[in-house]
């Protein structure tokens, strides 16, 4: 028992050391960026980051292979991270505050979260059963898989056109108004987001040992009960991941939404009635066209902050320690 306690402490100490190391690295990066930005030389930070990645890899590992991978990898990180850092650094705080207090922006942010949430729920509601079917396999499966993955390769404006052809005027459900409606916006979002929900959930189903389902069945549970008590709970993390990915994809969707539902009316609880707004990416684009980079950047900053906050909350809720599932 003493040994187990000792090894537990060792693990805890190791984690603390790692966390301190990571925090130190990030702190140094932030300081370096602030210094480079303040002196008007952001390029220097790019060189610093690549160099610091190489030095850190050398100090931690020492092998030329790891140094090479860290150095080359950091070039991509520069491409991904530097625009983000510059974007944040170049915001005008007063403009961000002004936009944060703008009721129009509130509606856009509300719609930018609420619409994708509906699309994610729709994707999961019908995607989970499909994912389960795909995980079990059936004749003609490659055809269905191709159809599911089709939105991943279709240009997004084309996806919007497809939605209009399928469900718009003269489409499959003539009684439902799609063009310029909330239904159309959610459909357009679900069209591009559903593959993420289906594929992540399918992977979760496939990771479950089929003998667990056999064990459930042979000891009395029918297929519904087996799904409710065994398969579903074990795949719930994959479903949530799929839902979050679908939501994130829908949040970022521009092309399909701009084609199908450029501007929509929806119930806005804070106004107690119907209001009209645009999906956030469309609104940011319009602001850019009408007000320029700085004004659109302030709105984009708010959208980025809200999205990042929701993403972090969901990540926390789906962490190993906060949710059940396959260990």
């Amino acid at each position: 028992m003493a040994t187990e306690t000792g090894s537990g402490l060792d693990v805890k100490t190791g984690r603390v050391q790692t966390a301190v190391l990571v925090a130190g690295f990030v702190g140094v990066q932030l300081l370096a960026f602030v210094a480079a930005y303040a002196t008007g030389r952001p390029t220097w930070y790019a060189y610093f980051m690549i160099g610091s990645a190489a030095v850190t890899a050398y100090l931690l590992d020492g092998s030329s292979f790891v140094v090479a991978t860290a150095t080359l990898g950091s070039v991509l990180l520069i491409a991904l991270g530097l625009p983000l850092f510059m974007f944040v650094a170049r915001q005008t705080p007063s403009l961000v505050v002004e936009k944060a207090a703008d009721p129009d922006v509130h509606r856009v942010l509300y719609l930018g979260i609420y619409g994708p949430l509906l699309a994610a729920i729709l994707s999961l509601a019908f995607g989970v059963p499909l994912a389960h079917l795909l995980s079990e396999g059936f004749s003609g499966q490659p055809l269905v898989e191709s159809l599911v993955d089709l939105p991943l390769v279709v240009p997004h404006s084309v996806a919007g056109i497809l939605v209009l052809f399928g469900f718009g005027e003269g489409g499959a459900f003539p009684s439902i108004s799609v063009l310029g409606s909330m239904v159309g916006m959610v459909l357009a979002m679900a069209f591009v987001a559903a593959p993420y929900a289906v594929n992540a959930t399918r992977e979760a189903f496939e990771a479950i040992d089929h003998r667990l389902e056999y064990a459930s069945r042979i000891h009395g549970a029918n297929r519904w009960e087996t799904f409710r008590r065994v398969t579903g709970p074990l795949a719930v993390r994959g479903m949530i991941t799929g839902g979050v990915l679908a939501w994130a994809r829908a949040v970022s969707e521009f092309g399909a939404v701009a084609v199908v539902a450029y501007s929509v009316s929806f119930f806005y609880p804070f106004a107690g009635g119907e209001v009209t707004a645009q999906h956030a990416p469309v609104f940011v684009y319009n602001t850019y066209l009408q007000g320029g980079l700085q004004e659109s950047g302030a709105v984009a900053f708010l959208l980025l902050a809200v999205s990042a906050m929701i993403f972090l909350i969901v990540r926390y809720l789906t962490d190993d320690n906060t949710i059940g599932g396959v260990p």
Binding site: D209, L212, Y214, R217, I218, H219
Partner: peptide
């Protein structure tokens, strides 16, 4: 009959206990 209607018990090689 489906497995759940056969009144059998089954012990699996890899146990197949429900981990949750």
């Amino acid at each position: 009959r489906a497995p759940e209607r056969r009144d059998f018990g089954f012990v699996f090689q890899d146990y197949a206990l429900f981990p949750h």
